[in-house]
Design a binder for these strands. Structure first.
Lengths: 146, 146
DNA sequence: CAGAATCCTTAGTGATACTG
DNA sequence: CAGTATCACTAAGGATTCTG
């Protein structure tokens, strides 16, 4: 019985993978995971989403000062691409000096929750990963000596 | 009552973000999410993990033929980095011709589950994202005409 | 078969200067 | 303030050739 259960779980996973992993043709829009990952797989998107998640509404320079190390250019590029995907909304107030407020859309908030879940897993397993890296580094060293 | 509940949820999220988002110093090892994302934010890692998740054990060329478009070099690089993090195990059989079998470690299987969860979200929301992109493209076009 | 090594192209990123 | 435009650099990725 137990064995069948595990077996069934395995099959369910394989089935899921098959649906997610469209192996051929159209590299775009075909694999939704890949497409989503491309959104925050870059250097600044995660930080931007997390920072906006904390504060609800932030102006350009507020974001820039809270995201440590980002350049003006890259923040602009990142915000544009997030806006393009409907994850961030951009509210322009036609004043002088100009004021622009950024915030997460409901869609962006949904993604934020996914990121936080991933973060839970990451925190739970980061030590294992760091250990694995050390082990690997040691093995490398020994291989070089030989 | 309802309001307080929502309010509390919001605070819980902000707290979580604060823990995940270490804003200053040590860019490495400090933000676990970023660190994990760097693992499969690249071009081939996800495909590799998903493909290995389907088949349990695969040889180098089997992987290469199943991951559509990957070069020999990039597959090697990807596998090495996944092995380094303890996500993939590499079993060498000292025969002639050589045989090498790759498989997910328990840690890698854990990450696979996370990826599949993300995939669920992705599939659920990909349409909204695509719509947002179209809307954005239209707005861009109109702005250019003006 | 499973790669290592090399070279080359280009996309991502960053610094700087300028503008409504 | 909130950008845009330009240039320059680096690293990711890919094509090819060679090997135990």
């Amino acid at each position: 019985m137990e064995v069948t259960k595990v077996e069934n779980q395995r099959l369910a996973i394989q089935k899921k993978i098959d649906k997610v992993l469209c192996s051929k043709a159209e590299p775009e829009t075909c694999c939704p995971v890949k497409d989503i990952l491309a959104r925050f797989g870059d250097k600044w998107s995660i930080y931007t989403i997390l920072t906006l998640g904390k504060e609800e509404k932030l102006r350009f320079n507020e974001l820039k000062s809270q995201i440590n190390g980002v350049s003006q250019r890259m923040l602009t590029v990142t915000l544009r691409s997030l806006e393009e995907d409907g994850l961030v909304s951009r509210q322009v107030y036609p004043e002088i000096p100009p004021r622009v407020e950024y915030s997460l859309t409901p869609l962006g908030q949904g993604l934020l929750l996914q990121l936080l879940q991933l973060a839970d897993w990451a925190k739970l397993n980061i030590d294992q990963i760091l250990e694995a890296r050390e082990r690997y580094a040691k093995k490398e060293k020994q291989a070089q000596l030989a």
